[in-house]
């Protein structure tokens, strides 16, 4: 398949453009997504291409953006809402958690809510306490919501296309530090199924499970460790809910050691879910306790040194893996 190198942000834009061309019911809404092109430039140029009726700039009204998407989805459209920063999801969460996630079930299956809420998450930009959040774990706790967090341009495009085609509400987590990263993306159209993990690197000594920004860091750590004779298998779960436990299981059965790496605070984070699942289901295959390497228990600090220190970095990943594989 012929491909070219594009950025993560471009890949997302292509996904939206292709789906908008294919289906007139797909539209975008959010703050500053029109002429401004979105706070991180993801929707750049789309208003020129599709017009202000399908690329809708809204006031600063997260409840009405997410709730508006729910309503439009209920009458048959496929809205893609952008929430400017993941921290702002808290404002519109009532509509997402109490409405979007539950409507299909509560209405006895008589209605569906095909909508996507995209949002940039994560720290590393010096934006401090209100613009650096990684709250994806919260939404994985809600039956009725799908949560996806791709790590590469290829995955971002294929997963966003599937997300838009999906008949159910989905939270699409985009790490800010990934937007400018580049990767090969096929010229041809493709979809990546929601709920399928991807083995980003095969190895036999230890399974490292992560998603989003942690994947490039884990891959870098794996290279360093390869030089020291440690062969790391890297699983990018891509979809936090539904979770591909099958891929995790086959890897753990092979390596017998597991570490879960994620940016949000360790306590009550998504790593705990993976860790306990592995402990319950694969106990007999484990040669060591399942380890969680998460963020520090602290709101995101502004100071750049501290901001970096509270989130797992390559050196932290290398250190923790070495502790497990001796």
């Amino acid at each position: 398949m012929p491909s070219r190198e594009i950025t993560y942000a471009e890949a997302l834009r292509e996904a939206m453009r292709e789906e908008m061309k294919k289906d007139s019911q797909v539209f975008l809404l959010g703050e500053d997504i029109g002429v401004y092109g979105g706070a991180f430039g993801v929707t750049q140029g789309l208003i020129e291409e599709f017009g202000p009726e399908r690329v809708i700039d809204t006031p600063i009204s997260e409840i009405a953006i997410i709730g508006g998407a729910v309503g439009a989805a209920l009458v048959g459209m496929r809205p893609v809402a952008e929430i400017m920063f993941f921290d702002f999801m808290t404002i519109g969460s009532d509509q997402l958690v109490n409405q979007a996630a539950k409507i299909r079930f509560m209405f006895g299956g008589k209605a569906k809510v095909p909508m996507v809420v995209r949002s940039p998450a994560g720290s590393g930009t010096g934006a401090a306490g209100h613009h650096s959040g990684s709250l994806e774990s919260w939404f994985t706790h809600i039956p009725g919501l799908k949560v996806v967090a791709p790590s590469t341009p290829y995955d971002a495009k294929g997963l966003l296309k599937s997300a838009i085609r999906d008949d159910n509400p989905l939270v699409f987590v985009e790490h800010k530090l990934l937007y400018k990263t580049k990767g090969q993306v096929p010229e041809e159209e493709y979809y990546i199924p929601i709920g399928k993990a991807d083995v980003k690197k095969e190895g036999k000594d230890i399974t490292v499970i992560g998603y989003s920004i942690m994947i490039p860091r884990v891959l870098e750590a794996s290279q360093i460790l390869a030089g020291e004779g440690i062969d790391v298998e890297v699983i990018d779960i891509r979809s936090l809910r539904p979770l591909d436990t099958e891929t995790i299981a086959s890897s753990v059965k092979k390596t017998n050691r597991v570490i879960v790496v994620y940016e949000p605070p360790r306590f009550g984070g998504f790593g705990a879910e993976i860790s306990s699942w592995v402990g319950e289901e694969l106990f007999d295959y484990l040669d060591a306790p399942v380890v969680r390497l998460g963020g520090e228990e602290m709101p995101p600090p502004y100071n750049p040194n501290l901001e970096r220190k509270i989130v797992p970095q390559v050196e932290d990943i290398v250190r923790e893996i070495k502790k497990l594989v001796r």
Partner: peptide, 8 residues
């Protein structure tokens, strides 16, 4: 104390 920055 450098923890909040401009916005806080």
């Amino acid at each position: 104390r450098g923890l909040g920055g401009s916005m806080h």
